[in-house]
């Protein structure tokens, strides 16, 4: 038996915002430690890794590890039945091929129960090495989102360059070229507004911009996000959800022919 209750049910909605444009179906790995997911996009260029710790949930019970396959388009439809302030309980009986989602209003005056069929999904599980990155930049997630959106109307690829002075996003297209630099800045009162650059070695990598736009759909999960880069390795874009877990996106760089 698997059962887990989230007081902030809309966390799942926010997570799905970031996932559904990247993957249409995925296996959720349920274990006593929590719920995780790893999936590649259909062109195998990007990979998403989600982790929600068991203690992020109000009541968490997972009697045995199990993978449950879900169509994320269908899951998004089901989540429409949940109000933004509703609690969300997930229940999956080991003997059944479905999951039950229960949405309850905080005042306990509305109760919705939806059952959704699970599916068998063949998926490859990749081992992600624990990289030490050449550069890690933390910045407000809203700022990152705005930058990648703005640049995507100019070009298709983005060159990300980190030096001790800051992080620069560059693109070019028919309209012309654009460079946006964010310098380290820790002068604001709120830490979430800071931009910090942790640099071992300067690094420059080029990526398909549209993936960054998709990753930025996780902006509502966290005020801060981080970009971790190493020479000729996939970038890691992370949105941490406090001590509840994280969503990490990996994107393979474009390599000069």
């Amino acid at each position: 038996m698997f059962e887990a209750k989230l007081i902030q049910g809309n966390l799942i909605k926010k997570i799905m915002e970031g996932l559904k444009d990247l993957v249409t179906e995925a296996n959720f790995d349920l274990s006593p430690g929590g719920v995780s997911l790893q999936a590649m996009d259909s062109s195998h260029v990007a990979l998403v890794a989600l982790m929600l710790r068991g203690d992020a949930f109000e009541n968490y019970r997972c009697d045995r590890p199990r993978s449950i396959g879900m169509n994320l388009v269908n899951l998004s439809k089901v989540l429409k039945c949940a109000g933004n302030d509703d609690t969300m309980t997930l229940k999956a009986d080991d003997t059944q091929n479905n999951i039950t989602l229960v949405f309850e209003s905080q005042a306990e005056d509305k109760y919705a129960e939806v059952q959704m069929e699970l599916m068998d999904i063949d998926s490859e599980h990749l081992g992600i090495p624990d990289n030490t990155y050449d550069a890690i930049v933390k910045m407000p997630s809203a700022q990152f989102s705005q930058i990648v959106k703005d640049l995507s109307s100019i070009g298709d690829t983005v060159t990300v360059s980190v030096t001790k002075d800051g992080i620069t996003f560059s693109t070019s297209g028919d309209v012309g070229t654009a460079h946006i630099t964010c310098k380290q800045n820790t002068s604001m009162e709120k830490e979430a507004d800071h931009t910090t650059v942790n640099l071992e070695h300067p690094v420059t990598l080029t990526f398909a911009l549209r993936y960054f736009v998709t990753f930025a759909k996780s902006t509502s999960l966290s005020h801060q996000m981080s970009i971790s880069l190493s020479k000729e390795l996939p970038v890691m874009v992370e949105y941490a959800m406090g001590d509840m877990g994280h969503i990490r996106f990996y994107l393979a760089p474009k390599i000069d022919d």
């Binding site: 599980h125 390795l233 022919d257």
Partner: peptide, 14 residues
């Protein structure tokens, strides 16, 4: 020009 590599070429199958 730039060529796009697969993410699978970086991460090992586990």
């Amino acid at each position: 020009g730039n060529s796009q590599r697969s993410i699978k070429s970086f991460f090992l199958k586990s």
